[in-house]
């Protein structure tokens, strides 16, 4: 979890993309499928959270501008 916290959105997204591409091209063996899917879903969750946090933060920041 700590590792994930540190992971940037960019890095997470990139890793996610790699996994998704591998998934789509069926480059992932059944043996590592569940592991990869688990990782991908973790990354998805992370990305989701980062987006939500960022959105909230942007909203706050712009609200703070008081314009």
């Amino acid at each position: 979890m700590n590792d994930q916290e540190k992971l940037s959105y960019e890095a997470a997204f990139e890793e996610l993309q790699t996994i998704m591409a591998a998934l789509q091209n069926e480059e992932i063996s059944v043996d590592s499928l569940s592991e990869k899917v688990k990782r991908a879903s973790e990354l998805l969750k992370l990305c989701h959270e980062k987006l939500r946090d960022t959105e909230k933060e942007v909203g706050t920041v712009i609200k703070d501008l008081g314009l």
Binding site: F13, L16, Q17, M20, L23, Q24, E26, I28, V30, L33, S34, K36, V37, A40, S41, L44, C47, H48, L51
Partner: peptide
């Protein structure tokens, strides 16, 4: 992310 999410829920199962 949503597209990935959908794919993620489909591709492994289809695989």
């Amino acid at each position: 992310i949503l597209a990935f999410s959908e794919k993620l829920s489909l591709i492994p199962l289809s695989q």
